[in-house]
Structures are given as C-alpha cells and as structure tokens.
Amino acid sequence: MAQTKEISRRIKSVTSTKKITKAMEMVAASKMRKAIEAVLKTRTYANLSWETVLRLAKLAETKNESLHPLLAGRKEIKKAAIILISSNRGMCGAYNAAIISKAKDSIKKYNIATDFILAGKKGLSLNNQNYNIVAEFEKNDLLNDAKEIYPIIKMAVDDYLSGKYDKILVAYTDFVNPAKQVPRVKQLLPLDIKTVDEYLGIVGKDPKIGVNQELINEKSKKHSSGDNFVYDYTFEPSPSEVLDLIIPRLLEVQLYQAFLEANASEHSARMTAMHQATEAAGDMVSELTLFYNKARQASITAEIAEISAGANALAE
C-alpha cells in the first residue's frame, strides 16, 4: 500500500505542474500574437530605412569624405560594445543560452575588448563569467512605444561618438516563424556596407509559411550587392542637417526592430517550451497512472493470497 500512496502523490504533483505549464503556454501564446503583429508591422519600415542607411554609407565610402561622424568608420577598432537583448525570465527553452553564446562567439571571432550593454535580466548571468557589463536596461515583455529604447540608443551613439567604443553590435534573436528563431549579431555602428546578411527580418513573409536559406540569400542579393548603383544624393537643405536628423532616427528604428524581433522570438520560444513541458507532464501522468494501477492490483492480489492462505490454514 505504501507504494501506491507514493505514486498517487507524484501523480498529483505532476498534474499540478502540468496545469501551471499549460497556463504559462497560454500566456506566452497571447503575448506572442501581439509581439508578432508588432514585428510584422514595422518590418517594411525597418528594411526600407536600413536600405537607405546602406545607400548613404555607400555614398560616403565612394566619395571618401566624411558626410557624418556616424557614417565614418574607424581605422583601428580597439573596443566594442554589444547590446544584448535577452529575456527577463527563464522557462523559454534555449532562447537565452543561444543568444548569449552567439554573442560570446562573436567576441571570440573579433578578439577585441568588448563591453556588454544589457536589456533583459537574463543577460546578467554574464557577470559570473568575467565579462564587463556597463549597463543593464529594463525591458518590458512587450514594447508599447519606440521611446522605451531611446535611452539605449542614446548611450550607444554618445559612447561611439566620444570614442569610448569603435564598434557597436546588437545581439538579438531574429524571428523567422513561431517554431524557428535565429540568434544574430548585427553591427549597428559604424554603418558598414561590407557586413553582409545582417538584415532585420524577412520582409513581407507570413510567419506561418516559413523561410529557407535560399529566400534569405535572394533577399540579401536583392537588397545589398545587387544594386551597385551609387546615388549621388542632393541633400536639402544641407547634407549635415539632413543626416543629423535621419541617421539617429534610422538607428533607433533598427534597434527598435531588433527589440521587436527579440520579443516575438522570446514569446514563441516560451510557448514552445511550455507546450513541450505540458506534453511531457501529460505523458508522465499516464505512465504513473499505469504504475499506480499495477501497484494497486499487485497489493490486492497479495492481500487476497494472504487471506486465502490464512483461510486454508484455518480449515486444515
């Protein structure tokens, strides 16, 4: 009887865990819907503005003159910063681990001193690993307003202009579809045309259809290398006035888009993880129920055997 009690206790605990994971799945699903809607809405804008940035960068390069301090590259890269977008809470599968390890990889690749600017609490785990964290910004689960990211971009741009950093990267998770998210490190500053395939999102694609590598290649060909024409823009009223207004705005949009992508990915990842957890709990419950029934049956059989043995002994 002791065994059945033990098993029934476990069934109870697994069932309640299942209820919790189910609830978390539902919450993540509703947040995901909102996040996906937001990310798809701004993708066209973000992609078009990024194209503009690239064209401006190309112009600056061919003209070989500095149109704007943010368009000028640095001769020597001494220090870089990574804006790492992670989640606030766990329970989202490999989401945080993937983006953090991607960020670490990119540090190893370039091998330059790198500081971290964090958004989302989970990035703080880097603290224990000898990485330098200069700031940790609060991040909401869903962005309501582009204004929420202004402090981050301001810090990044100011530090870049003051020469504290020679390169600003942003590490975020690109949302491909609810089942697939790709961790990515994108160079934000200097605005460099040579960094290929660093596009934010895939324009106009339904998240339900999904995408493959071909499509990404095709897109990047269409948007960057394919168009070699250099536009010798006229700026009205003047280049500096126009670029002063445009470039910070474009950077904001890029970072904003990165946040939206990361949010959509986070909630998708959490939903998937919680869905799997719910399913695993269901499997476990049915397995335990089987054990429970077997144990109960065994104990009853044993009892009957005992009783009949006793009765037989009395009869003799």
Binding site: T52, L56, Y231, D232, Y233, T234, F235, E236, P237, E241, V242, L245, I246
Partner: peptide, 19 residues
Amino acid sequence: PTTSGEITVLPDHIPLVSV
C-alpha cells in the same frame, strides 16, 4: 512639404534626400 519648402518630384528627378 519639406523643411525647406514644398517640392514637386517628377520621374527622372535627380537623387535626393530631404526631411
């Protein structure tokens, strides 16, 4: 409407960026 006045753009306009 741009910051430096209203402009009209026709096809074959020179490349331009304005606020």
